[in-house]
Design a protein around this nucleic acid. Structure first.
Length: 477
DNA sequence: CGCTTACTACTTACGTAGTAAGCGGTGCTGTAAT
């Protein structure tokens, strides 16, 4: 039966690994958390069940407008017309029309922010929702706490919509991320379907250097590795600077116009450019099979982010390479960026005091010179509007910073690890290490399944090392 | 916080040291009312 639907509506003869299991779980009405390798055909997992149900809507929450556009287009291309999207790109009339069509609609794509709009929520509450899908569900953990807080509220919204079954999909999730997803979506005894996050086709290399040698090192690696190649940097300026030094390269970051971003992504996709230098803005939803190399000029803030980013290599399954360049002190920028997300206690005090005097946020913004677009200030505002007190917020900030510094430490541990890079990463994702060829710079093809490095239970050591890494310049004796 | 850039001061001939200012990621968004 399922194969028949697969052939008829999706024109595939067979399911790929994991798809069937997820679909069965979805059809059983259970909450499902699925960790599938990238490019594993995730969309079929939530699109197919709809054809086996007599009526009802499939709601798909997606993090990027561009992703929503792509998905809707792909569905239409396969001949399904009962699909719509609800984003800020639609006009008021279009939105109204979509909300009017709801009872007859099969798929609705929207951003998490749209679900915070009262009218959207109300109209959706009147409709039968078969499935509540959260695509790229790691965003709940990655963005939900600080940056896009509507992600953290999806569970409550789901309750308000009659608690339809939920399917959360992602490619990479540690236990912590999994926990964030379960809590954020209020999943009830979810069926957890896990596939290994290991990407055996990608060999892992870390190259440590002095800051001044990095450009030369990058140049040397570029002579050795195959293209197409993605180079990740932390800052936009660095992405632009490095792109200039490389032939047939372009840069990509969030400071570009949406049109330019799309154009460059397309050029890279069609091999007109074979080297893309970018910030973390690049990658989500990019389906390019032949990326041979991912180089990190500077490290990301977490191992999960690192896995997401190197995961863009070798989707065609052919041998690929991930290289991370590290110079002492590289973590400081990540540390700064992390700190910058939280309001300084001065702001908290000032704004709490202003509210006590019934001053509006707008007035305070003027009086105190606060930028209403600053994410840290916006987060503070959300928390205060949610009824949080000064001490709630301070305690929460402390707890979050501690978690995130620890994640950053894990990234450093990966770099300074001396056993096996792959084993370290798999261990981080609570998987057992595997032995394989083309493994990493530390073990080559001689991988052994050994106990790996310290983990969270190494409390004392952790604190000491944290001080060493972040404060050594000031506190050295 | 730490790195880079811009400017100033002082010295002494076009250069250098010292200080101040600026910068550093990710994306969504009913936006009320004249």
């Amino acid at each position: 039966m399922m194969e028949k639907v697969l052939r008829r509506f999706f024109r595939y003869d067979h399911f790929r690994t994991g798809q069937q299991e997820i679909i069965e779980s979805v059809l059983s009405g259970q909450d499902t958390l699925a960790i599938l390798p990238t490019g594993g055909g995730k969309s079929i997992c939530y699109q197919l069940p709809s054809y086996l149900q007599p009526e009802g809507l499939t709601l798909i929450l997606s993090p990027l407008l561009s992703l929503i556009e792509d998905q809707v287009m792909q569905i239409k291309q396969r001949g399904e017309r009962s699909v719509a999207k609800l984003t800020s790109l639609e006009t008021r009339e279009q939105k109204e029309q979509v909300l009017h069509q709801l009872p007859r609609l099969r798929y609705l794509y929207l951003s998490p922010e749209q679900l915070a709009v009262p009218q959207v929520k109300q109209r959706l509450a009147d409709v039968k929702i078969n499935l509540f899908v959260v695509d790229e569900a790691h965003c709940i953990s990655q963005w939900g706490h600080e940056f896009r807080t509507d992600y953290a509220k999806l569970g409550h919204v789901r309750r308000q919509l009659g608690n339809p079954p939920c399917l959360a999909l992602t490619a990479t999730a540690t236990k912590r991320v999994e926990q964030d997803i379960v809590e954020g979506l209020l999943l009830q005894q979810p069926n957890r379907i896990r596939h290994s996050v290991n990407r055996p086709e990608i060999q892992l290399i870390v190259d440590q250097a002095e800051q001044d040698d990095k450009d030369r090192l990058l140049e040397a690696w570029l002579k050795k590795v195959e293209r197409p190649c993605v180079i990740y940097t932390t800052t936009r300026r660095e992405a632009e600077r490095i792109a200039q030094q490389i032939t047939n390269a372009a840069y990509y970051h969030a400071g570009l116009e949406a049109e330019d971003r799309q154009l460059i992504q397309q050029q890279f996709l069609y091999d007109e450019i074979d080297c893309l230098v970018c910030t973390s803005a690049f990658g989500m939803g990019v389906n390019k099979g032949n990326v041979r190399t991912v180089i990190h000029y500077t490290m990301p803030a977490t191992i999960e982010a690192y896995m997401q980013e190197i995961g863009r290599a070798g989707r065609d399954g052919k041998p690929s390479t991930a290289i991370l360049l590290y110079a002492p002190g590289d973590q400081r920028l990540q540390h700064f960026l992390l700190e910058k997300q939280y309001a300084p206690s001065l702001w908290i005090d000032q704004v709490v005091e202003g509210r006590r005097r019934h001053e509006s946020f707008e007035t305070m913004e003027h009086r105190l010179g606060l930028d209403p677009d600053d994410p840290a200030y916006r987060l503070l505002k959300v928390q205060l509007m949610d009824g949080k007190s000064r001490s709630d917020i301070i305690d929460w900030q402390e707890a979050r910073k501690k978690i995130r510094l620890r994640e950053l430490m894990q990234m450093i541990n990966y770099i300074q690890n001396t056993l096996c890079r792959r084993a370290f990463i798999l261990h981080h994702f609570d998987e057992t290490a595997v032995v394989q060829d083309r493994c990493c710079d530390l073990c080559g093809n001689l991988t052994e399944d050994k106990p790996i490095i310290q983990t969270e239970d190494d409390q004392l050591n952790w604190k000491r090392r944290l001080e060493e890494v972040f404060f050594s310049s000031r506190h050295s004796v």
